[in-house]
Design a binder for these strands. Structure first.
Length: 892
RNA sequence: GGGCCUGUAGCUCAGUUGGUUAGAGCGCCUGCUUGACACGCAGGAGGUCACAGAUUCGAGUUCUGUCAGGCCCACCA
């Protein structure tokens, strides 16, 4: 049995990554029965490549999924990708542009072909990256939001909602991106503050010599004004009601209306009304039946209605309108103003509110059940406070504009009759209209990409067919995702799931944090501070990257990744690797080929049952394994991934390597022929590998495959082996106690050596251990181990240390350790004692103060009071010992 | 304008229901090429838990306020 001297994950990770897929070990089988754990991946965009956010998300999902699988649950992690409407269309358009082509030149059909081509060629990129990073998905069930089955689900939902009256079509004001040339939903508009102006313009009141001053941030829209509004309660303008104003530049007479939209407190209290270009004004226009004059078109250019400004870009028009107003001397004043412009999420172009005929989903009826699902706890957010954000959005929900003027996406299943204007919404292409005409044209628009994403948890499982998958794996158990798509995706899945399936799509929603760089900056391509997970994976290994991410992944906090964190995680992986090397080396020496776990592969209690015949370190490590298994499981269940990482790190490094392996070395020297000794070591290591597997899948698979004998009983992969479970019978308190005494004695001796400035670790010191407690028995039975670990030669005495005895003393409640040294290092020792004494005096004073407090004694639970009493006795005894030692030193 | 989160060691963060000398990783200091590992071993220094009050026998932990950051939502021209 040989393994490479250096931990080089690059040498084995790709192999296991491929094998995990080709062997099909992650394939879910509905007929397996038993407890189900199912989860759908938040489908990454096909255009995407894996970034740290994905890596974190996938790692958290993978840890949880592997853990469930190892516990024997019927486990499904369903993977797939999203067609990502605008994003993908943009990518392909850019590619076309390089060839000097536009999509319009190509035509719709050709263009769609090109996008599919692109998808076949490059769309698999992110999937390959996921496979390389070891995500344990069931790749046989991989889905794409635009594939046949999902498209059918989309049509089905659309038709059903339409028939229920929850989808409607109409002329409303929507967000329009003049670059993408499509409508956008409110969520796809991001608001950014920028510095602008507030222009005050005088509108002369017809038939008087007065004028009204309106304030606007967008003077170019005044060309489309069809009224000015004042508040009925505003005394200043009361008498003007019923009159009209003359619109400058356009020379149009428009009415003065009364409306609450005008706030007497704000500006001049007069608002210009442009029903065609502002959402507020649109509503006011409807209230007052005002005409809508469109002065800006879909390209954000001024229309013919803009008179002499026609053809200008909206921003040029703004400048020219202002100049013209200035010339007319109707510009009252200009003041700087902070404005909040909406921009297209994808291309950052300032969106233009336009009136347009679009398809909408009526959201209020869908929101209600989704609200109740969270209120009743059928859906649970972790961390919990995300439910507040969810509620806030749900309560104020507005209808969803779902039609997009794009070519890449789910074509809206509606056909327009060219003869009679009838609209036919149908699952399959209709042949003829009610009127008998066969002249039917399908609606050219496609659906918002999030429409199909909203169906993901059931569409991927075969809905609307009644499949076994659907029956088995819906509702899914858990969703792990980022807060940035809480509304886009999570909320809509909740609504669609409840509407179409009558049941929540998932019961737990774990919202992970944001990945940040070493300077706590959000990672973004534009900032150039991204760390490519594939690059660090190649450099340090997937396991190290996973571990580094998990260590910082406390719920509700952001996750910082940096080179040194990954390095530290790699050091841990390396530690495991080297422990394996030690173990393999000893197997070889003992002539043991491999490890045969025997009948049971998850038994933790066996070595303990053999009781005192079993070496202390074995009894202890199985007890510790037991505890680590318990803590790991509990942390995974609670999505406390940082605790998972921490538990494993401290168990394996601090307990397994630092103490267990060190003691085993001595034991092997002592009993070179004992195979039982090695077997316990192997057993403990094998269990540790299983414990580590969900977090560090590659490394553990590599070692486990080499270590564990291939038998009929043995699963093909460690991923299918049992996760170590907490075993009550393996709780070994005596072993834990004895071991901690051993550790205390060794540590005391090491501390003393440092105090005494014994720099040569090989120098053996003589010493005496005084104890009247269990420490003496441990020292007796484990004398060799203690002496070797601390490099001392001990005499054991069952008595308290005499006051006069030596100066190099370390005292604990259990024992006093005195080392004799040729040359006394009085200074260092004195400093140490003084520091200890100070510290003890402080805690003693504190304990005494508490115990002297009548109310404390009466009110605090007896357990706490007794605890402090007991501690006080210990402190005082230690203080006494330290003081006499210090006196001894001074006397010297 | 509304809502949410954060402030603990030089840095990045843990700290479950208030209870017994506040922890980790990285960095720093000292000493060690110890037959698994220098990606290592053994020791060590470093904190009035942002500030001010309140509740309590007892507060890093609960409440209020202040200050400082960050995020989300919103049609005030």
């Amino acid at each position: 049995m040989q393994i490479d001297k250096v931990y080089e994950p690059q040498r084995f990770e790709p192999h296991w990554a491929e094998w995990w897929v080709s062997s099909g070990i992650f394939h879910a089988e509905p007929s397996k029965g038993g407890k189900v754990f199912s989860l759908v991946i938040p489908p990454p965009n096909v255009t995407g490549s894996l970034h740290m956010g994905h890596m974190l998300e996938h790692t958290e999902i993978d840890v949880t999924t592997r853990w469930h699988r190892m516990r024997g649950h019927n486990t499904l992690w369903l993977p797939g990708t999203d067609h990502a409407g605008i994003a993908t269309q943009m990518v392909v358009e850019r590619q076309l542009a390089k060839e000097g082509l536009t999509r319009h030149q190509l035509g719709r059909e050709e263009f769609e072909k090109r996008v599919w081509q692109w998808k076949e060629e490059y769309g698999g990129n992110i999937v390959r990256q996921m496979i390389r990073t070891g995500t344990s998905c069931d790749w046989s069930r991989q889905r794409f939001t635009l594939d046949e089955g999902l498209s059918r689900a989309v049509r089905e939902v659309f038709v059903r909602l339409y028939e229920k009256g929850l989808i409607y079509r109409g002329q409303y004001m929507i967000n329009w991106c003049p670059r993408c040339l499509t409508a956008l939903s409110d969520l796809e508009v991001v608001h950014e503050e920028s510095q602008g102006n507030l222009w005050h313009i005088r509108y002369p009141v017809v038939g008087t010599d007065r004028y009204l001053v309106v304030a606007t941030t967008r003077p170019e829209t005044m060309l489309g004004d069809t009224a000015v509004a004042i508040n009925a309660k505003d005394e200043r303008y009361k008498d003007l009601h019923g009159r009209t104003v003359r619109l400058p530049l356009m020379d149009r007479e428009i009415p003065i209306i009364l409306d609450d939209m005008a706030d007497p407190e704000f500006g001049t209290g007069v608002v210009k009304v442009t029903p065609a270009h502002d959402p507020n004004d649109f509503a006011a226009g409807q209230r007052h039946n005002l005409p809508r004059i469109e002065v800006i078109d879909k390209h954000a250019k001024m229309t013919e209605n803009a008179g002499r400004f026609a053809g200008l870009d909206r921003f040029d028009a703004r400048k020219q309108v202002v100049a013209a107003l200035d010339e007319l001397a109707v510009l009252d004043k200009v003041e700087p103003y902070q404005l909040n412009a909406g921009r297209c999420q994808r291309c950052k172009t300032i969106v233009e509110p336009l009136v347009s005929k679009q398809w909408f989903v009526s959201m209020k009826p869908l929101a209600q059940p989704a609200i109740e699902a969270v209120e009743s706890g059928r859906i649970r957010f972790i961390p919990e406070n995300w439910s507040k954000t969810y509620f806030e959005w749900m309560y104020n929900i507005r209808d969803w504009c779902i039609s997009r003027q794009l070519w890449w996406g789910h074509r809206i299943p509606a056909w327009h009759c060219e003869e009679c204007d009838e609209i036919i919404v149908a699952r399959e292409t209709p042949e003829r209209c009610k009127c008998g005409s066969t002249n039917l044209v399908q609606d050219p628009d496609v659906l918002d990409t999030w429409f199909s994403s909203g169906l993901w948890p059931f569409s991927t499982l075969g809905w609307p067919e009644k499949t076994i998958d659907l029956a088995t794996y819906y509702p899914t158990t858990l969703l792990i995702t980022g807060f940035d798509i809480l509304f886009f995706w999570v909320a809509r899945m909740a609504m669609m799931g409840l509407e179409c399936m009558g049941e929540v799509p998932f019961s737990d929603v774990y919202i992970h944090g944001l990945v940040r760089d070493a300077d706590k900056q959000k990672m973004s391509k534009t900032k150039g501070n991204t760390i490519d997970p594939l690059v660090v994976t190649e450099q340090y290994g997937t396991d190290a990257v996973r571990f580094a991410l998990l260590r910082g992944a406390a719920p509700g906090t952001d996750i910082v990744v940096s080179q040194d964190r990954v390095e530290s995680a790699r050091a841990f992986a390396n530690k495991i690797w080297n422990a394996a090397r030690f173990i393999f080396m000893n197997m070889e020496k003992a002539g043991i080929e491999d490890y045969d776990p025997g009948e049971t592969d998850c038994c933790m209690g066996e070595p303990h049952e053999a009781s005192l015949a079993v070496p202390l370190e074995d009894r202890w490590i199985f007890a510790k394994l037991n505890r680590a298994a318990e803590n790991t499981s509990r942390a995974i269940e609670a999505y406390r991934y940082h605790e998972v990482a921490d538990t494993l790190y401290h168990f394996f490094w601090g307990e397994f390597c630092d103490w267990y392996v060190e003691l085993k070395k001595l034991r092997i020297q002592e009993f070179p022929d004992s195979k039982a000794n090695i077997r316990n070591l192997l057993k403990a290591f094998e269990i540790s590998l299983r414990l580590l597997h969900p977090v560090m899948p590659f490394l553990t698979e590599e070692l486990w495959q080499r270590l564990v004998r291939k038998t009929d009983r043995r699963p093909a992969s460690i991923a299918l082996a049992r996760f170590p479970e907490y075993d009550n019978s393996a709780v070994d308190f005596p072993a834990a106690h004895e071991m901690s005494l051993l550790q205390d004695i060794v540590t005391a001796a090491r501390n003393l050596r440092t105090d005494l400035q014994i720099t040569d670790p090989k120098q053996v010191l003589d010493g005496v251990l005084y104890s009247t407690t269990a420490a003496l028995h441990v020292a007796r039975s484990e004398r060799n181990a203690i002496e070797r670990l601390a490099n001392v030669k001990l005499e054991l005495r069952e008595e308290h240390a005499p006051k006069t005895e030596g100066t190099a003393i370390r005292s604990t409640p259990e024992f006093d350790l005195v080392l004799s040294v040729p040359v006394a290092q009085a200074d260092a020792q004195r400093k140490r004692l003084q520091k200890d004494i100070e510290q003890l005096e402080k805690v003693i004073a504190n304990s005494q103060r508490q115990l002297g407090d009548e109310t404390f004694i009466n009110k605090a639970p007896a357990k706490v009071v007794d605890g402090i009493r007991a501690k006080l006795v210990e402190y005082e005894s230690q203080l006494g010992k330290n003081r006499s030692a210090l006196e001894g030193l001074v006397a010297q």
